[in-house]
Amino acid sequence: MLADRFEIILYQLGMERLEHPLFYHASVAIRFKIGGDEPVYLDESTGKLTPNPTYVQSALERAVTIYRSLPAPPDTLRIDGYPDEESAESLLTTIQQRIGLPVPHERIMAVVMDEDGDARSQVQFYWDLSKISFQPEQLLREIILGDIGGWNGFVSSVYLTGPGPFLYHLYDDRGLDVLGGTRELLFPLYHRFHSWILDYDRERINRVFSGTA
Rank of each mutant, 00 (worst) to 15 (best):
M1H: 01
L2K: 02
A3K: 08
D4A: 11
Y11P: 01
E16L: 11
E16K: 13
F23Y: 14
F23I: 07
F23Q: 05
H25I: 06
A26L: 08
S27M: 09
A29L: 06
R31P: 11
F32V: 06
F32I: 11
G35E: 08
G35W: 02
G36N: 14
K48G: 04
K48R: 15
T50R: 12
P51Y: 12
Q57H: 13
S58T: 15
A59I: 04
E61F: 13
E61W: 11
R62Q: 14
V64Y: 13
T65W: 10
T65C: 14
T65N: 15
I66G: 03
R68M: 15
R68S: 15
S69G: 11
L70V: 13
A72W: 12
P74K: 06
P74Y: 07
D75C: 05
L77S: 04
I79V: 14
G81S: 09
E86Q: 12
S87D: 15
S87Q: 10
A88F: 04
E89S: 15
S90I: 12
S90T: 15
L91E: 04
I95G: 02
I95M: 07
I99N: 03
L101Y: 04
V103Q: 10
P104A: 08
H105Y: 05
E106S: 04
R107K: 15
M109W: 05
D114T: 11
D116G: 09
S121M: 08
D128Y: 02
L129T: 06
S133G: 05
E137N: 11
D147W: 00
D147K: 02
G149I: 08
G149N: 07
W151N: 12
G153M: 01
V155M: 07
S156I: 04
S156V: 04
L160I: 05
P163K: 10
P163L: 09
P163F: 06
F166L: 09
F166E: 04
Y168H: 06
H169L: 07
L170Y: 00
L170Q: 00
D173A: 07
D173G: 09
R174F: 00
R174N: 00
D177V: 08
G181E: 11
E184G: 00
L185W: 01
F187N: 08
P188V: 10
L189S: 03
L189C: 06
H194P: 00
S195T: 14
S195Y: 11
L198Q: 08
E203S: 09
E203G: 02
E203I: 07
R207S: 14
